[in-house]
């Protein structure tokens, strides 16, 4: 099999996932797109492992580790999303703007003092 087939498929899947991460609004759909990106990487790892005929099969071992880490990531991510939903009533990533800098609000001296305190 040509190595180009799995490599190009993995690149395209990665870019589809990239689009999903940037364009989606619901946090759970963002997590789904992250899964797509991770799977694209896994396909690359398996294809190159089979191509190189590695004696240690590092690609396949790393794929299994990536799958396990992705499972851990999705568990933690969903727990965080559920907590945010319980506290805020929304899971939309572009409505969580607490830490965003807004240009129109001038910084009050109190908050500056608090920040300095927190930094110290």
């Amino acid at each position: 099999m040509h190595l180009a087939y799995p490599a190009v498929l993995a690149a395209l899947l990665f870019c589809v996932g990239l689009y999903g991460v940037l364009a989606r609004r619901n946090a759970i759909l963002v997590l789904m797109s992250v899964e797509l990106m991770l799977n694209a990487v896994n396909l690359n790892l398996v294809a190159f492992d089979v191509w190189l005929r590695d004696a240690l099969h590092a690609g396949q071992a790393l794929t299994l580790f990536t799958i396990a880490i992705a499972a851990a990531e999705i568990g933690i991510g969903l727990a965080i999303v559920l907590m945010v939903y319980r506290n805020r009533g929304t899971a939309d990533v572009d409505r969580l703007r607490d830490t965003a800098e807004s240009p129109e609000t001038p910084e009050s001296p109190e908050s500056t003092a608090e920040k300095a305190e927190a930094a110290a």
Binding site: A7, V8, L22, V50
Partner: peptide, 25 residues
């Protein structure tokens, strides 16, 4: 997002195709 993904896809597919077009599994 569409522009970024399209640009990334074009760049990645070009590079990958150029590098591995002669490789055979």
């Amino acid at each position: 997002a569409l522009a970024v993904a399209a640009a990334a896809a074009a760049a990645l597919v070009w590079v990958v195709w150029d590098a591995f077009r002669k490789s055979w599994i």
